[in-house]
């Protein structure tokens, strides 16, 4: 069953002069990991940011539909704050707030009015789900900035999980991490897909091949090919996909 569906999704930058996404139609399956791949500037991050209306923050024009559970998220009736609670996002560089580990994870739930024991329970659950609890349970009051890069990224995932989202968007979550931290995040993604729908932008094709169930290849704003990851990496249908994933693109 598809969790998110885009229909003729078009995105324009710079007052309409740059056509960044050209009529993208895609169905993103619930409880699966969908990887978005393609060369720099192909529109994959723009696409990711269109899924929780992050592009709006930069004065970008969006046309077409993005349906989540059948409801257009660009409809005027949709509350953007609520929408971003349902669709969490984790960025390329770990970006913990300059506060304690506890307060980082508590930030979202507190905004939504949670306090005391309920809040503590959510923080523990979120840190456990992000596979960080064992490493930080005795130092929750320490600054999050003292954590390693990989731990900071898992903290950001815990922070995203704390508001109980349905979808998680990852924008190159491992590009700033070493191979061991990357492997931990990848293992975590596979765990998380049981409870969440995951979309991940990655430049690392091996990562896309390792973790995702579906892969979408973008080129110059167009969705060139979308299919099961094994099919895309073993026998892509489109010559452009093949040229890109075999590295003959240039």
């Amino acid at each position: 069953m598809s969790k998110i569906e885009t229909r003729s999704l078009n995105v324009y930058y710079d007052g309409g002069t740059v056509h960044a996404l050209k009529g993208v139609n895609i169905k993103i399956e619930a409880n699966k990991i969908t990887a978005l791949i393609g060369p720099s500037g192909c529109g994959k991050t723009t696409f990711l940011r269109a899924l929780n209306r992050m592009n709006e923050l930069n004065g970008v024009k969006t046309r077409g539909k993005v349906l989540m559970d059948g409801v257009d998220i660009y409809s005027r009736k949709v509350d953007v704050i609520q929408l971003r609670k349902r669709i969490g996002m984790v960025f390329q560089q770990p970006n913990p707030f300059p506060m304690s580990i506890f307060d980082n994870v508590a930030y979202g739930p507190r905004i939504h009015g949670l306090r005391n024991r309920k809040l503590e329970r959510i923080i523990e659950e979120s840190l456990k789900k992000a596979a960080l609890w064992e490493e930080v349970k005795d130092r929750l009051e320490e600054s999050a900035l003292k954590l390693s890069g990989g731990q900071q990224q898992r903290l950001c995932i815990a922070r995203a999980l704390a508001v109980n989202p349905e979808v998680l968007l990852f924008d190159e979550p491992c590009s700033a991490l070493d191979p061991v931290s990357t492997a931990r995040i990848e293992a975590l993604l596979r765990e998380l897909k049981n409870d969440y729908t995951i979309v991940i932008v990655t430049h690392n094709m091996q990562q896309a091949a390792r973790v995702s169930d579906f892969t979408a290849f973008f080129l110059m704003g167009e969705l060139i090919e979308f299919g099961e990851t094994m099919q895309i990496f073993e026998k892509p249908r489109d010559k452009r996909t093949e040229d890109y994933i075999t590295g003959r693109f240039g």
């Binding site: 091996q206 990496f233 892509p236 075999t246």
Partner: peptide
């Protein structure tokens, strides 16, 4: 080289 697609095949 992490070959893919036709190269992998």
């Amino acid at each position: 080289q992490q070959p893919m697609a036709v190269d992998l095949r």
